[in-house]
Design a protein around this nucleic acid. Structure first.
Lengths: 227, 227
DNA sequence: TCAATAGTGTCTTTGAGACATTATAGA
DNA sequence: TCTATAATGTCTCAAAGACACTATTGA
């Protein structure tokens, strides 16, 4: 081994590293509203309070941060999160009473609620959906209310420029459904004509030729996200 | 001590934490171009190569990530970085040969080059400015070329909506100077009339009454960033 | 007067909001 | 026919790009 490795080993012994975790902000549109999945903690600290599901980064198991996010999602929620996006890293002394210095890398993902069969993992009593309004204004565990607010802002910025996150919609959808979901995320109504004009210009959706969805009204063209 | 603290201590012994660092992407406008400050490494790994200045997060010294960024700036560059912005956290196995698993939190900041009296700290031969073009296309140490590309994108997004980062301009400046600096950051020319109209609407600069800058041409109104 | 930059005005294009209109299914 | 939603069209307004023009200094 080179002297540099030795030096690292010495540095590691000398300087303890932050307690490093992943926190998941899993969003869904339910009942026409943007909601976030929280777990109720069964143990101190903050026993009884609601918190983002999360877990420790395991350098023996995870090849990188994204993989750690995937593993935590599987372990804590029992689901595979496709294409979660990093929101921010927060790290400070006294963030988490279990450690002198805690660093959390926050990820966000969107899911269709009926496709998520989330099961509460360790240290959680149960999982429950909260509107983002409720979640960001109530007393959650740790600094999670602030983290959720950050994630919501990022998500809205993305949707407002018609960059729809995977997981927002089912594989196929109508433009009416896409507009409803966008309105739920953004928290305000959109103009139909303008919405479609912008979709056209942005080329973010493509029609599936010949496929329509019917009901007691005019059938709607079915679309999908390209790629 | 509560059982939970014990549990954390056990977890820490059981699960080694990532080797956690701060990397600094310090930008300046020099010679009409956006440039980034790199240091040449004096030791392996990547001895001789250019890299972002950075340092280990010290949980005994730093109260949070932003404070760690400040300390690293002081130690490695000898300057106080005002209002650095977090860009991204990257973490993976084999990112850094010195550690089995390395996590870097990347910050970006803008400085006026003549105000920076940067002195190369430990493990660096010297510090030098590179155009972002050079930096993102040449073979830098570690994954730093990618990190710089990320930081540049974020910076451009910010300036393109007239959110000027502190450190871009001196305390006072003319609109001509502000436009030149913006053009350097964005990498393309801007229309003067449109630029000023947008500044007016955004209220991101305020004139200093009565103060003008002279030269062999019509005197220019002097402005400052509000706040 | 000239060179150089500051500052303003006008025309046009683009994009999006508001809102109306037509279309088409099932009940 | 009625109701609900789909799909399109039109008018207007706001913002920004293109570009020209005037203003003011020192050399």
């Amino acid at each position: 081994m080179t002297p540099t490795i030795d030096e690292f080993q010495r540095a590691r012994a000398q300087y303890p590293m932050p307690f490093t975790r992943i926190e998941l902000a899993v969003f869904a549109v339910k009942d026409g509203k943007l909601q976030v999945l929280l777990g109720q903690r069964s143990e101190p600290p903050h026993a009884g309070k609601w918190a983002l599901p999360g877990g420790v980064v395991r350098i023996d198991l995870d090849t990188n941060l994204d993989a750690a996010c995937q593993r935590v999602a599987r372990e804590r929620l029992g689901v595979a999160l496709t294409e979660a996006q990093q929101v921010i890293a927060v790290g400070a002394r006294r963030r988490d009473p279990r450690a002198p210095w805690a660093l959390s890398v926050v990820y966000r993902a969107m899911v269709r609620p009926h496709r998520l069969h989330a099961v509460a993992g360790k240290r959680l009593v149960e999982l429950q959906w909260f509107t983002t309004e409720e979640a960001t204004t109530s007393a959650l565990a740790f600094d999670h209310a602030m983290l959720i607010a950050r994630a919501v802002t990022q998500l809205r910025d993305q949707v407002s420029v018609l960059h729809f996150p995977p997981g927002l919609m089912d594989q196929t959808f109508t433009l009416g459904e896409l507009q409803s979901a966008s309105e739920a995320v953004l928290g305000h109504a959109l103009d139909k004509s303008s919405f479609r004009r912008r979709l056209d210009a942005a080329q973010t959706v493509e029609p599936i030729a010949g496929e329509v969805r019917s009901g007691p009204f005019r059938p709607a063209q079915v679309y999908r996200l390209p790629g």
